[in-house]
Simulated assay, not measured.
Amino acid sequence: MVIIRPIQLSDYDALHRIAIESGHGFTSLPVNEELLTQRINRAEESFNKDVKAPGNEGYLFVMEDTETGEVVGTSGIEAAVGLDDAFYHYHLGKVVHSSRELNIYNTVETLSLCNDYTGASEICTLYLSQSHRKNNNGRFLSRMRFLFIAEHLERFSQTVIAEMRGVSDDNGRSPFWNWLEEHFFSMDFPTADYLTGIGKKVFIAELMPKHPIYVNLLSKDAQQVINKVHEKTVPALRLLEAEGFCRRGYVDIFDGGPTVEAQVNSIKSVNESHKCQVLIGEVTSDDNYIICNTNVANFRAVQAPLLLRETANQAVISLATANALNVTEGDWIRLIQN
C-alpha cells in the first residue's frame, strides 16, 4: 500500500534524491542541504501550528510505499505566497497602436511584471518517482491536496494557483530565458532558477525590465514557448484543468510557463468530496477512492476501495485501510472517488 503523510526530518535523504531526480525548472526543491532542511522544518512547524487564517505556512507531503518504507513522491501546498518575499509573474496584455489618418491598426501583446497573486494559496512541488507512476498514484498525489484544503479551509486563501513548468531542454536551457539573459541578466536559466529556489530573489527586481516588454520584439523561439508547458507537465496540467483550473494570462518570469488558478469553491475535488463516519468491516467493492483522515499533524491519505452507506453518512473500510489512516470505528474521514 502507498500512503501520503506529512514530511519528517528523517525523510531528508529521500527529499534530496527527489530534488536531484526532478531536474531543472523544479524551483521549489533546490539541491541545497540547508534549504531542503529548512523546507522540512517549516513543514513540520506548519502541520503543528494552530491556524485561524492563511499565513506563511508551507505544507509538504510525501508518498511512502509501506511495503518497502521508501518515499517515492512528494507534493505541497503554500498557504499564502508572497507575504515575505515578492512573488513575481508576467501578465500578458495588449497595447493598440493605431492611426486613423493612415488607416493602420495594430494590436501588440505585452508582458508586464506584477505581483498580482500575492496572498494566494499555491499547490506545488509535485513529483512522483518513475517506479510508482502507475495505479493512479499521480492523480492520488495531486488530488489529495484538495481534500486537505477542503477539510481545513481556514488555512488557505480563496484563490488557489499552480505554476506549470515551462519549456526547457534536457540541459535546462529555456528559449524564453535565453532572450532575457542576452538583454538583461547575463546569467543562465539554471543559475537564475537555483537562486530563486534558495530565496535570493532580489536580483529579479534589480535586473528585470521595469516597463512592459513587447512580445513581438522577443526572439521567435521565445515567443513560441510563452504560455506553453513542458512536455512532461502536460498530464499535470490536464488534471488541474479537469479540477476547474484555468489560465488568466499569467506566466512564469523565467521559462514563460503558464500559471493556472481556481477559486476554492469551484475546485471539483473540494466540492465533490464529503465526510463519512468509519465502519470497519469486509469490503467487496472494487470502486477506488481517495480517503484521508481529518487530522493535520497526523494527516494520512490512501487509495482504497470502500462501501458507502450514503443514507447513514457512513463508509465501510477494511481494517488495513483504517490502520493506514490511523482511524478507528466512529472516526470521520473525507473521501472522493478516484
Rank of each mutant, 00 (worst) to 15 (best):
M1V: 06
V2H: 07
I3M: 01
S28A: 11
P30Q: 02
R42H: 12
E44K: 14
E45S: 11
F47N: 10
K52G: 12
G58K: 12
F61A: 08
V62L: 04
V62R: 00
D65R: 01
T66I: 13
V71I: 15
S75P: 02
E78D: 10
A80V: 03
V81F: 07
Y88A: 03
H91E: 15
V96Y: 07
L102Q: 12
C114I: 13
D116E: 14
E122R: 09
L126K: 01
S129R: 09
Q130W: 04
K134G: 02
N135I: 01
F140K: 01
R143Y: 14
H152S: 09
L153A: 13
L153P: 08
T159P: 00
V160W: 01
V167K: 00
R173H: 10
W179Q: 06
F184R: 12
T196L: 14
K200W: 01
A205F: 08
E206S: 11
P209M: 07
D221Q: 14
Q223T: 06
V225G: 06
V225Y: 00
I226N: 05
N227Q: 10
K228G: 10
V229Y: 00
E231Q: 08
T233V: 10
L237F: 02
P258V: 00
N265G: 02
N265C: 06
K275V: 15
I280T: 12
N298H: 11
N298Y: 05
N298T: 09
V302T: 10
Q303N: 03
L307W: 00
A312G: 00
S318A: 06
L335E: 04
L335G: 03
Q337V: 13
